[in-house]
Design a protein around this nucleic acid. Structure first.
Length: 853
RNA sequence: GGGCGGCUAGCUCAGUUGGGAGAGCGCUAGCUUGACAUGCUAGAGGUCGGCGGUUCGAGCCCGUCGCCGCCCACCA
């Protein structure tokens, strides 16, 4: 066994062996309790990043832990076609090649998409394997594979049958570059520095009277169909019911009163442009104002009745309109104005609200179902507070625009016959249900990607068919995501699950931290700030990356990428490696007996066994309580400090002497430790486990450890003996040696109290001293429990540094003043007071010994 | 505008019923100690964002202010 841990060598072969052994293959017919996770399908827009590694690690910890605790586990892999995102990626590639999708044509574009799917899909699956993700690759799904397409179409048709889908001209967020509608959640709001103009409109029938409106988009006045003021605004009460005359165009605009107007913004008068503003659309609906569509789908103005502006891009039209209005003296003010402007979150283009024919999913009933389910405790959120993100959104929800005008995505399964009858159908119909027509046009639009993602937990299991997988593994057990897609995805899965499966799609949701760059920026491929997990794995190993990610992933705030901490876990793996080397070397040829409490265990054996039980409990509680950081910390602390620093250091000489108890205990502790660590660091634990003696199955088929209460440290006597007395004495010896510049070993120690032989032996080994009953001549130095004589002349400098004594004095003073406070003694719990008294007494005697030995 | 999270050692972060401030990395000093220099040993370093309050006692509870970040939202 090499002396140095090599992550690449360790991680090279295990994944293939696990897969070959079928460890990740789920059996729907298994009689064990079931546990399932549908992996959040990564977008096939590119390779996996550290966010996916975080997400995957958390799920893999659960999947592995559940297998070891006796569950039949399905962790289902897959990818998402990510219609708009993928289309943009490919469009950018084409742009670099100097062409466009239009030049390429639909067919060639589709081929291009297919080969992209294949190559990126393979990369993603490969990355999951490198990470050690225990996914069932026999069940890999893609949101565009034929069975999934059928599920999406079925969902659409069923919504349609229920009357939850409607189509109509509505104002939507329109991306003039993607040439598609997008939903409210896909709007990326950014601050803009614009100009707020105050523009004067004449009031009809009252020569010289004007009404002054405020706007940042003067070009849209060309599509104005009204003017609005607040109903309670005294200034304008007289105007309500009159008409204003739209400059440049001459249109009559009714002046209406509507509560959506904010009286103290601008002039308190709002121009109403129902075709180009969502608020205005709603005002227009309330007052029956006509809708003028003043813009083409590519963002150029569509105002044929005013040819001077027709066909201009919005910003050019804005300049022209303002110049013309200025000539008429109608621009009363132009002030700098900072506000939020909506952008397409996929391509960054400024959105234009405009009216178009779109499909909408009615959200009222679906939201109500979800809220009712949550009120009954349908889904548990970790951390709990994130449930509000979802509840608040549902409470204020508007209908979901599900149609997109893209080249890529699930086609909307709606057909219009030659006589204009509309039908939604999973399979293209042969004959119109309403007339004899057999000629159809298919709806040209596709669905929002999230419509199909929302079906993921059951569509991957075979829905709409009643499959064994669906029956065995729905609802799933766990979902994990980052905060930013709670409403985009998690919420929509919940109402979809309730709608089609009558049960929420998962029992628990973990919202994990987002990994930022080391200087706190967002990790993004386009910014060049992304970190490829494969590079991290190459440098430190998947185990180290996973351990770090598990340690920080549950944080309530975002976490910065920190290589030094990942490297720390690589060193930890090396520590485990070498602990295993030590134990292996000490075992000898004969079989190692089991550890029994009545065997001849020495003090250190009993102590490490007690610490082990506590660690088992802490790790189990950490996983079950969604606090991986406490599980990892307990493991790290136990393995490095308790086991390696103290137990194995003390056990070394016993192992060399062939002590059966030391052999049995060190092997047992290592065995349990590797099992506890396996969900977090699967590769190195598997490797080391198989290097231990005996026939060994895979760790995943090995039972999760349980605390053995027979080894508990009842009353804390082992902790007192070992951690306070023994370790305390060893540390005192080391401190003396350091301050006196002595050799790291040597000296004679006399202990006051009667300790048994194994205590004395441990002190001799750990302190590198002889423990005697009579001290040799020489200067005696005080210990908490006795005296030590080092081989040296009289100390050249004070053996106890003044600073250390001062510190102890200060501690004692604080304890004493606390105890002198009658309020403390009277009101604090007796146990707390008693602890303080004991502490003061110990400090006092310690100081006395150090001063006047 | 509403809501949420964060502000703890030079850096990255723990700290779950309020009762002696922690880890990893970095830093200082010393060690070829027969598992490990990816190591061992001993250390330095913090008014727990500011100010008030509750309490015998506050990093933790309450109030308030200040930054940083996220989500939601129809003031054009």
């Amino acid at each position: 066994m090499p002396s140095a841990y090599d992550s690449q060598a360790v991680e090279a072969g295990w994944y293939a062996r696990w897969e070959a052994a079928g460890l990740f293959r789920a059996d729907a017919a298994s009689g064990k309790p079931h546990y399932s996770i549908a992996v959040p399908p990564p977008n096939v827009t590119g390779e996996l990043h550290l966010g996916h590694a975080t997400n995957g690690t958390i799920q893999d910890v659960w999947a592995r832990y559940r297998r070891m605790t006796g569950y039949e586990v399905l962790w289902l892999p897959g990818t998402d076609h990510a219609a708009i995102a993928t289309q943009n990626v490919i469009e950018k590639q084409l742009e670099r090649e100097g062409t466009t999708k239009e030049e390429l044509g639909r067919e060639a574009f589709a081929e291009r998409v297919e080969s992209w799917y294949a190559s990126v899909g393979d990369t993603i699956i490969g990355q999951f394997k490198q990470l050690g993700a225990s996914l069932d690759h026999s069940r890999t799904r893609f949101t565009m594979d034929p069975a999934y397409v059928r599920a999406v179409r079925t969902a659409f048709v069923r919504y349609h049958q229920r009357g939850l889908l409607y189509r109509g001209p509505r104002i939507v967020n329109w991306c003039p570059r993607c040439m598609s509608a997008i939903s409210d959640l896909e709007v990326d709001w950014q601050e803009h520095e614009d100009t707020l103009y105050q523009l004067a409109y004449d009031v009809e029938g009252e020569p010289g009277a004007e009404v002054v409106i405020a706007t940042v988009r003067p070009e849209t006045i060309l599509a104005d169909t009204g003017v609005a003021v607040h109903p309670d605004d005294e200034r304008y009460r007289a105007l309500v019911g009159r008409y204003a005359r739209l400059p440049l165009v001459g249109r009559r605009l009714p002046i209406v009163a509507d509560p959506a107007v904010t009286p103290d913004f601008g002039t308190g008068v709002l121009k109403v442009t129902p075709g180009h503003d969502i608020v205005d659309w709603e005002i227009g609906e309330r007052h029956g104002l006509p809708v003028i569509n003043g813009m083409h789908l590519d963002g150029r103005l569509n105002v044929p009745e005013t040819p001077a502006y027709d066909g201009l891009p919005a910003l050019e039209a804005r300049a022209r309109v303002i110049a013309d209005l200025e000539r008429e003296g109608r621009v009363h003010a132009a002030t700098p104005y900072r506000h939020e402007v909506g952008h397409c979150d996929r391509c960054g283009t400024v959105l234009e609200p405009l009216v178009s024919e779109q499909w909408f999913l009615r959200m009222g009933e679906l939201a109500r179902m979800s809220l009712d389910s949550s009120a009954r405790g349908g889904v548990r959120w970790h951390p709990e507070r994130h449930e509000r993100t979802y509840l608040d959104w549902l409470r204020g929800i508007r209908d979901w625009c599900v149609s997109r005008q893209l080249w890529l995505g699930h086609r909307i399964p709606v057909y219009t016959c030659a006589n204009g009858h509309l039908s939604a159908a999973v399979e293209a119909p042969a004959v119109c249900p309403e007339c004899p027509s057999n000629r159809f046009t298919e709806d040209p639009d596709v669905l929002d990607t999230w419509f199909s993602s929302a079906l993921w937990p059951f569509a991957t299991l075979g829905w709409p068919d009643d499959t064994p997988d669906l029956r065995a593994f729905y609802p799933t057990s766990l979902n994990t995501t980052a905060r930013d897609i709670i409403n985009l995805w998690v919420t929509r899965m919940i109402f979809s699950g309730l709608e089609f499966m009558e049960e929420p799609p998962f029992a628990d949701v973990i919202i994990h931290a987002t990994i930022q760059t080391s200087d706190g920026r967002r990790m993004s491929k386009s910014l060049g700030t992304g970190v490829d997990p494969r590079e991290v794995i190459a440098a430190y190993g998947a185990d180290a990356l996973r351990a770090w990610v598990a340690q920080v992933g549950m944080s309530s705030q975002d976490v910065r990428f920190d290589e030094s901490r990942i490297e720390g876990f690589k060193r930890f793996a090396n520590k485990l490696w070498n602990a295993t080397r030590l134990v292996r070397g000490g075992l000898g040829a004969e079989p190692v007996p089991r550890v029994e409490p009545d065997a001849e265990l020495e003090l250190m054996d009993r102590w490490i066994m007690a610490r082990l039980q506590a660690t088992v409990a802490a790790v189990t509680a950490g996983i079950e309580g969604y606090a991986f950081q406490s599980a990892i910390s307990a493991l790290y602390e136990f393995a490095w400090h308790d086991l390696c620093d103290w137990y194995l250091e003390a056990a070394k000489s016993r192992l060399r002497d062939g002590d059966p108890a030391a052999r049995a205990v060190s092997l047992h502790v290592l065995d349990v430790l590797l099992r506890l660590l396996h969900p977090f660091m699967p590769f190195v634990t598997e490797e080391l486990w198989h290097r231990l003696p005996g026939e060994r199955d895979f760790l995943l088929r090995t039972a999760w450890p349980e605390s053995d209460r027979r080894f508990d440290d009842a009353g804390g006597t082992l902790a007192a003996e070992v951690e306070r007395h023994l370790q305390g004495t060893v540390e005192e010896l080391r401190q003396y040696r350091k301050t006196l510049r002595l050799a790291p070993r040597g000296g004679h120690v006399l202990i006051h109290r009667a300790h048994d032989a194994s205590w004395r032996r441990a002190l001799a080994d750990l302190g590198a001293v002889e423990v005697v009953t009579e001290l040799p001549p020489g200067p005696q130095l005080g210990l908490a429990e006795g005296f030590v004589v080092f081989p040296m002349r009289a100390p050249a400098e004070p053996p106890v540094p003044a600073q250390r004594l001062a510190q102890l004095d200060a501690d004692l003073e604080r304890a004493d003043s606390k105890l002198a406070n009658p309020e403390f003694v009277a009101r604090a719990p007796a146990a707390v007071v008693e602890k303080e008294r004991a502490r003061a007494a110990e400090l006092r005697s310690r100081i006395a010994r150090m001063r006047g030995h």
